[in-house]
């Protein structure tokens, strides 16, 4: 019997963040106005994407160490769900940016870096699709996954900080830390945790289906 408690926890945290994300008090800020509530929904997408990408990386490294095909399945499914969260984060960011920066897609280092980063990750799936032999596919895509992770992180989290960017937390712009008060944090952190759990849950469903598929094929 599988343990369900963490799924209920994730569901509860998500519901909490949706309810109090709208009812909770927020600081009054110029330009942001009520859109400050996007923090509860846009930022957790990126946090979840990061958590899933790190899980994917860990399983890729494990695969290279042990050569167990299960680890390759874990790595690929975590990566697949992380991309979904990345795309959702990007779309919500576009929407938010349109109302605070005045443009859906400004030519901004942070946005371009994320576009490139997500493209690098999409190549991972194209690479996977181009092998028939599962051990070869596992090995090469695990190596590529490590490369993708190692290029994504500096590209998205470090490079935009070295230049100017509209995005908070970059180029001398203060990060959300200074815009959020304690009341917002009480909603923000549960939202992040909730979405990470939901993302892991979805990934676990994909992994289990893939494993069933694998057993049937044997």
């Amino acid at each position: 019997m599988r343990k369900y408690w963490w799924k209920f926890l994730g569901a509860g945290l998500l519901l909490f963040s949706v309810i109090f994300g709208f009812l909770g008090e927020t600081p009054r800020r110029e330009i942001l106005n009520e859109t400050i509530r996007m923090v509860y929904f846009h930022v957790p997408m990126w946090f979840s994407m990061m958590a899933l990408m790190i899980s994917s990386l860990v399983y890729s490294v494990r695969y290279l160490q042990k050569g167990n095909i299960r680890d390759d399945i874990y790595a690929s499914q975590f990566a697949a769900v992380s991309i979904i969260f990345g795309i959702l984060g990007f779309l919500t960011g576009m929407l938010w940016g349109n109302f605070t920066w005045g443009d859906w897609l400004p030519k901004d280092p942070k946005l371009i870096a994320v576009e490139v980063g997500l493209l690098i990750y999409s190549a991972y799936f194209i690479l996977r699709g181009s092998f028939d032999d599962e051990q070869r596919r596992g090995r090469l895509s695990a190596i590529y996954n490590i490369f993708a992770f190692a290029s994504f992180m500096p590209l998205v989290w470090i490079l935009p900080r070295l230049t100017d960017s509209l995005h908070p937390g970059n180029g001398g712009n203060p990060a959300f830390g200074s815009d959020m008060d304690i009341k917002m944090r009480m909603i923000f952190y549960p939202a992040v945790l909730g979405w990470i759990i939901i993302g892991t849950w979805i990934a676990s469903l994909r992994i289990r289906l893939k494993l069933i598929n694998e057993t049937i094929n044997e």
């Binding site: 469903l205 289990r208 289906l209």
Partner: peptide, 18 residues
């Protein structure tokens, strides 16, 4: 979320069958 739970149960059932 309820739908996600439903899918989870279906996958569990499938696992048992396999």
């Amino acid at each position: 979320l309820a739908y996600l739970f439903l899918l989870d149960r279906k996958v569990t059932k499938l696992e048992k069958e396999v």
